[in-house]
């Protein structure tokens, strides 16, 4: 067996070990790689930055489940920190049944950092089933869809919600989603109501959103943990996203090396077989 064939038959547990080390070590020994901000992230940051302090709230739809939490929660935290730093009020909701607990956790953590008051500075609407019906219904009257907040308080009892009837009173919606919810916001909020929409999605989904971004249907886009890291750089609060960038850099590099080595070994072993076949005949 040639060395190339030996390489091709390497026990995959060695690869798993390399990936495990590559993920773990940069968390303890940060490389401090610089994160350069890209235009889609800058656009979303600018859209939030333009919001009037203390006026109508930004609607943050936290539409992710635990599986995509590591990529999307840093985005939620960065956006909420940006809003709260600028005195922009935030209303949080979710279209994913598993998003309730995650949305609540992120909102309470961010609000606690800034010592904010529930009902005045931020509100949690909770979950409603029926993605398209919810988004369309909110364009007519939010109270039809969410008559109460997540804790059972009528909307009119919440000072923040008193002047908010529908999308006319919401300057910007941002959907953070690991599934098609962000597209649903474009289809059912931007298209019929011309509601300004921004999105944060997982890295594998990000490519699907470039047509919307290019057409101006999206205000901006955060793609994967890199998107979160860029937003953290913009608000000057490096956190989970920026920390994850070192690990992700090393992992991507390892995968590229594995692809290169795998291909080299494959072609060398194939050439070896062809040469031995020719000489054998």
């Amino acid at each position: 067996m040639s060395w190339a064939e030996k390489v091709l038959q390497i026990d995959r547990r060695w690869i798993f070990l390399a990936i495990g080390i590559a993920v773990t070590v940069p968390f303890f020994l940060p490389l401090g790689l610089p994160v350069v901000v890209t235009p889609p992230v800058q656009s979303l940051y600018d859209a939030v930055e333009e919001l009037e302090p203390g006026s109508n709230p930004l609607l943050l739809s936290i539409d992710y489940a635990p599986a995509t939490l590591p990529e999307l929660e840093p985005m939620a935290m960065a956006i909420m920190r940006h809003c709260f730093e600028n005195d922009v009020n935030v209303v949080v909701m979710t279209l994913h049944p598993a998003g309730y607990g995650l949305a609540e956790r992120a909102l309470l953590a961010a609000a606690e950092e800034y010592g904010l008051t529930y009902g005045e500075d931020y509100v949690f609407l909770g979950f409603q089933p029926g993605t398209s019906a919810v988004i369309l219904g909110m364009g007519i009257n939010i109270r039809n869809v969410f008559p109460e907040d997540a804790y059972g308080a009528p909307m009119d009892d919440l000072p923040l919600m008193q002047g908010v009837r529908n999308y006319d009173d919401i300057p910007l919606v941002i959907s953070l989603a690991g599934w098609s919810a962000a597209e649903a916001w474009i289809y059912y909020a931007y298209q019929p109501y011309r509601q300004r929409v921004g999105a944060g999605v997982t890295a594998v989904m990000a490519t699907d959103f470039y047509p919307y971004l290019n057409a101006g249907q999206l205000e901006g886009l955060l793609g994967g943990m890199r998107g979160a890291a860029e937003y953290e750089v913009l608000i000057d609060t490096p956190d989970q996203g920026a920390r994850g960038m070192d690990s992700q850099s090393v992992i991507h590099l390892i995968i590229i090396i594995l692809i290169a080595v795998g291909n080299a070994a494959y072609f060398i072993s194939r050439r070896g077989k062809t040469v031995s076949g020719v000489s054998g005949s």
Binding site: L33, P34, V35, V36, R226, D246, S249, H252
Partner: peptide
Amino acid sequence: MLGRVPIGDI
């Protein structure tokens, strides 16, 4: 893959 992580810039 390289362009989406900081090491690509380096």
